[in-house]
């Protein structure tokens, strides 16, 4: 898990998106997004609702199929080939806004099912890894509870542990804190910051600009299905070039 000491394995981008386009019926949701993500890089995506940021992140593990352009994840191009897609999904952990924990399974089962069924791990190994992850996200004592018995913040930390249990090469976060009460946001962000510092490749949709300042390598501002502006946190926070980015940042930073 501790990849911090290991040298970066490769300088090739782990995610390559070229001119990705997506329609919902007549609605043009993604109008040509291009992005390259290096291993261990932390990308933060933000923008108004309906700007296509969520759709974009979901095309990376093909929860949404893109209709033109090219997406290459970990050397595999996303096409209609089903086998590739499941391999890609095993390498890409995803954390959802609404947690999406499986309510009929305990916390332990939530975390261990995917590695046992999809990585073919033995139960004892899966449970050992799960326990380590639960300790890492700070709730080892909740292992035998059901999701409904946990607070929102705890549920989201279980969801992060569940995704990490597959030992993915990269993590996608789709607004992980926006369904949480304010006092729970910090506990989830702390876990994510720790994860970023450990060298995980991450794409995070969030409006938590404190988080972005702390760990993001690059920021992307989405609007109307396009990347309006991108750059380092310094560049975007201090010298935004586009009028729309300025306005939006002014709005979210004023809080």
């Amino acid at each position: 898990m501790n990849r911090n000491s290991a040298p970066a394995r490769t300088e090739d981008p782990i995610i390559i998106c070229r001119d990705v386009q997506k329609w919902f019926g007549k609605y043009h949701a993604l109008k040509g997004i291009s992005m390259e993500v290096m291993p261990q890089e932390v990308i933060v995506i933000f923008g108004p609702s309906g700007s296509g940021k969520s759709t974009f992140i979901r095309t990376i593990n093909r929860l949404e199929a893109h209709q033109s352009g090219q997406i290459i994840v970990d050397g595999i191009e996303l096409t209609h080939d089903v086998r590739n897609i499941e391999r890609v999904r095993m390498e890409t952990g995803m954390v959802f806004q609404q947690f999406n924990l499986f309510p009929h399974l305990t916390v332990m089962q939530n975390i261990t099912y995917a590695p046992m069924y999809n990585r073919k791990w033995h139960r004892s190994k899966a449970e050992k890894v799960a326990m380590e992850l639960l300790e890492r996200v700070g709730i080892p004592e909740q292992a035998e509870k059901y999701p409904a018995q946990l607070s929102g913040g705890q549920q989201q930390r279980v969801a992060i542990a569940r995704a990490l249990a597959m030992q993915p090469k990269m993590m996608l976060f789709d607004e992980p804190t926006s369904a949480l009460d304010p006092e729970m946001i910090k506990e989830v962000l702390d876990v994510m910051i720790e994860l970023a510092q450990s060298g995980m490749t991450m794409i995070v949709i969030t409006h938590e600009m404190g988080f972005a300042r702390a760990v993001a390598d690059r920021l992307f501002f989405f609007d109307e299905g396009l990347v309006v502006e991108s750059g380092t946190p310094d560049e975007l926070f201090n010298f935004p070039k586009e009028e729309r980015s300025k306005q939006f940042l002014a709005q979210i930073l004023s809080h």
Binding site: W23, K26, H28, K31, S34, M38, D217, S230
Partner: peptide, 25 residues
């Protein structure tokens, strides 16, 4: 980590929405 990569990577191309609206596929 950040410093190294910031130099290595090109910034993603910025496209203007008005000039780049395509018809639905």
């Amino acid at each position: 980590l950040t410093l190294r990569r910031r130099m290595a990577l090109p910034v993603a191309p910025v496209t203007d929405p008005q000039t780049n609206v395509l018809p639905p596929a």
